[in-house]
Nucleic acid binder design. Structure first.
Length: 201
DNA sequence: TAGCGGATTGGCT
DNA sequence: GCCAATCCGCTAG
């Protein structure tokens, strides 16, 4: 008899219709589920970053609306996947209400189910290197722009988030976001990075 | 329409 | 610790 909780059901759109920092914090310990060609892949989210509106000079909407970032202005719970350095695909989930831009970048995961398939996608890297970076987790789970940019992540088909085991406040550390030296100092130094403390992952 | 540089990664010194 | 890889969105002209 099949387990009614497998694969786990998706988090509702209302979860993402909140402040980006709240969503980033509350995604820690949750699960990312990909119904892939190799079967169901499930990973626990252990690091995120929040990106704000046009006032956030680190965010892709800092210079206004463009074809690339348009999805960030749309309804929450959709995917924003983009290419950096010509090589790596980074996964974000759109936050805030329809019309207000915002997103959370997924920065690190640990495998929960389907680890062998993730290791294979990562060319044999099975330890921390499996998913301790935004480009690495996309590769491990098989997330690409072509497949998921602008996709709805609340449908329970393809790619979605699940309840998992939310992190307690004492398990969470914060710090400045990574790789945004180009941003204004106030944004560069803002503690909008959230991660589970070592040992809590 | 040319040029710049990036929300990164992995290999080499 | 340094640096190449490798696209493409964005800005300036």
């Amino acid at each position: 008899m099949p387990d009614p909780e497998f694969p786990p059901s998706p988090l509702p759109r209302s979860f993402f219709a909140r402040d980006s920092r709240t969503v980033a914090r509350e995604l820690l310990g949750r699960e990312l589920v990909h119904d892939s060609a190799e079967g169901i892949l499930i990973a626990r989210i252990v690091e995120t970053e929040a990106y704000g509106d046009e006032r956030d000079s680190a965010c892709h909407v800092a210079r206004g609306r463009t074809p690339r970032n348009e999805v960030l202005y749309g309804p929450p719970g959709h995917a924003y996947v983009y290419l950096v350095y010509g090589l790596h695909e980074l996964l974000n989930v759109v936050t805030e209400c329809d019309g207000l831009p915002g997103a959370v970048l997924l920065r690190a995961i640990v495998p929960v189910h389907g680890k062998a398939a993730m290791v294979a996608r990562r060319n044999g890297r099975a330890g921390r290197e499996l998913g301790n970076g935004p480009g690495k987790l996309s590769q491990a789970l098989g997330i690409t722009r072509a497949a998921f940019n602008r996709a709805d992540l609340c449908s329970g088909r393809g790619l979605w988030f699940a309840a998992g085991t939310p992190a307690a406040a004492g398990e969470i550390r914060t710090g400045p976001r990574v790789g945004i030296d180009y941003a204004d100092p106030v944004d560069r130094d803002a503690p909008w990075r959230f991660l589970l403390r070592p040992g809590q992952q």
